[in-house]
Nucleic acid binder design. Structure first.
Lengths: 397, 397
DNA sequence: GTCAATTTTTTTATTTCCTAAAAATATTGA
DNA sequence: TCAATATTTTTAGGAAATAAAAAAATTGAC
């Protein structure tokens, strides 16, 4: 869906305001390229809706003093929720600056019915909102992230592992029970949204986010927009093929997937292969890799080799992506910085070797720590983007 | 550069007109979602500019008869030119329907100076236009395709093999000498533009074009726009890495590139490796591969193996792309259908094996023949797109 | 033949939203 | 007190969309 010029301008103004806040109207005009009159008009609307605050400023110089504008964190709240791979369902209530006001984690009852899952989630959300200091009608929208194949425009879940296959109108089901609009997206897309909206990514319009966790996923922004393939699926970096012959078997059934070498599950899996152990379940995978980190640090050559290979192959996978797409920046996120530090040397060498010379610049690459809140912030970012596009007032209060 | 709403609407109307011509205003309104009044206004401008013709229609039914609209092929002409990998410089003059009016091929004098190349090209273009039945001032614009790294917004060449490195303002240099606006793009991007504007791709807004020739290239359309990375380089499918260890050396210097296995140069190269021959030059590469085709057809197991591997690896490379980007369609073009038919079985098997099940559908894939005119049609398409965005009259006649 | 019915196209009134320029506002320093 | 100055708002004007009314061009029934 193409935004109208006006929607686009409004979003531009808000994005500049977020990045530069507090900032005057005049500065916003020069940042955005719009005229002062237009800024006045757009800002007036945002102030009336309670999303933006004004604040006098004593400049000391001559002339009419500027009025600084900033996002009003209390202007509205978004609920960001995530179903994690390991089970707990996280609910955070986020203000307009991306700060968390309240946070809960709930273990859901096992089920294979998407309808049942939606029911449970509705209940958890209702409780979380009730228990929070935020009034129910100050919640503008709910954003939910799922590790699923889904259509984020309609909020329909197509495929969620261990559940009966969809399509199921997940967002609608929850919205009906909760009485608040609900938006849905894939977990990794949410992280990318969080980067783009709240973090360093906010001034970068073309970047790729790589998440090195139990699995390996990626999401791309291009021209300031999340790239969504024709099936609405995130970039499946983990299932690109790195080893063409006799590769390791991946959970997806294919052979030689990057994930089977460079994701945590792959790293642990290779270790188990070498020692004739059964691969541990997801629940203890993090413990297993922590032990491998110890070994590698203690000088275990074989284990070091596994990490080195993980870095080398991840470099190939990323190089392939860079050669195809030429993103401006790449950000690798992980919950486990110690893993990143063990693989980064091989990764950089592999990138330098495999990316086309014109396309390679080390400054492209950055590493970051993934924390549980990022998902919720992403869900909130998705909601904010939607809110800012809309023109209705936020609250009925 | 974001189009304004009006520009976008104008382009939308023209695209629908092209695809459905001849077509009435009313039908255009429902196709485009715009109101009749808007269509009247946009079409009036296009008719005044001479780009669209009206034609009465006897419907037989009741009511005011519809007036059919179609693109006026003689409304303007675009020059499409290409510097081919093997040397000849092709110049075609193309009408607004993409049909070729006049065609020349010239061998340029060898040089390493981009300025010299631009001079030669200017001369050839001037002669080609003079020799054609089209008046000089009916030429609205010149589009040139180069197998180069370049910035297509500014018409600057950054890197063209065997030439001194840029940046060099190639388009400006030619435009100054010729007195006609000039646009530049990468050759493979041009092919994608030709597909999107003139051919089957015109109703598909997300597709990937793969060109299997001496090298191996690709270009992607997403949301009806050519995807251009942050360096303006086309998707370097040929330099994605398929063999992670001890792969063949590629012209780019790296090891294990897809191009070293699945491009014609790679196919011939593997044959030479096996027989201890020196790799032939680009000029006789096509003869060499033709001989290999004969051998394979005659039952030579080793040669068949090379083609099979080419297909298998191309399948992996494409699967990686599909898993990352999820394009709606994939079109594989080649000048040599016989090569495609030798590799297609292995290619399809490899795709079926390596693409994630949700993303795979055989209908996605199509094969086509690449003819020399396609490049020029692409150059013309680039020019037309630009023309349609502009609002000045086409000609000074 | 005339005219009601019908379909297509154009016109008109209205709205939205931008820009440029003028006006208003709010402050400091001479 | 007011000139100077910087910021913001207002105003007038224009581009381009929509919805609805009007106009145009034809057929078929009587």
């Amino acid at each position: 869906m193409r935004l109208t010029d006006h929607e686009f301008n409004r979003l531009t103004v808000l994005r500049h305001m977020r990045a530069a806040q507090p900032v005057s109207r005049t500065d916003l005009a020069s940042l955005s390229g719009l005229t002062g009159g237009t800024i006045t008009q757009i800002v007036r609307e945002l102030v009336q809706r309670g999303m933006v605050m004004e604040q006098r400023v004593e400049t000391g110089g001559r002339g009419r003093p500027r009025v600084n504008l900033s996002i009003n964190p209390q202007g509205a709240y978004a609920v960001g929720a995530t179903l994690t791979a390991e089970g707990p369902f996280l609910v955070d209530i986020i203000d307009l600056n991306g700060n968390c006001v309240s946070s809960t984690s709930t273990m859901l009852r096992g089920t294979q019915q998407l309808a049942d899952l939606a029911d449970q989630i509705s209940g958890v959300l209702r409780d979380a909102i009730a228990a929070s200091p935020v009034a129910h009608d100050a919640i503008a929208m709910v954003g939910i992230g799922l590790p699923a194949v889904l259509d984020n425009r309609t909020g329909t879940v197509l495929m969620l592992e261990t559940f009966e296959p969809g399509p199921y109108p997940f967002a609608d089901a929850i919205a009906r029970q909760l009485g608040v609009p609900v938006r849905l997206d894939n977990s990794i897309n949410l992280l990318a949204r969080a980067m783009h909206w709240f973090d360093d990514g906010s001034d970068v319009d073309d970047f790729t986010l790589v998440v090195l966790d139990l699995g390996l996923g990626a999401a791309c922004y291009q021209n300031g927009q999340l790239v969504i393939g024709s099936h609405g699926i995130e970039a499946e970096l983990g299932h690109t093929k790195i080893v063409p012959e006799n590769g390791r078997r991946c959970q997806c059934g294919a052979l030689g997937c990057l994930q089977a070498y460079s994701a945590i599950s792959g790293i642990v899996g290779q270790h188990c292969d070498a020692h004739g152990l059964a691969e541990p379940s997801y629940l203890v995978m993090r413990d297993a890799v922590a032990e491998m980190v110890q070994r590698a640090r203690a000088g275990d050559i074989a284990t070091q080799g596994i990490f080195r290979r993980a870095g080398h192959y991840l470099g190939i996978g990323l190089a392939n992506h860079i050669n195809m797409q030429d993103p401006d920046r790449i950000l690798i996120l992980s919950q486990h910085p110690e893993i990143v530090s063990l693989i980064s040397e091989a990764l950089l060498a592999s990138l330098a070797q495999n990316v086309l010379p014109h396309l390679w610049d080390q400054a492209k690459l950055a590493f970051g720590k993934l924390d549980a809140l990022s998902y919720s912030r992403g869900a909130a970012a998705m909601v904010l983007e939607r809110l800012y596009q809309a023109r209705e007032p936020l609250q009925q209060t």
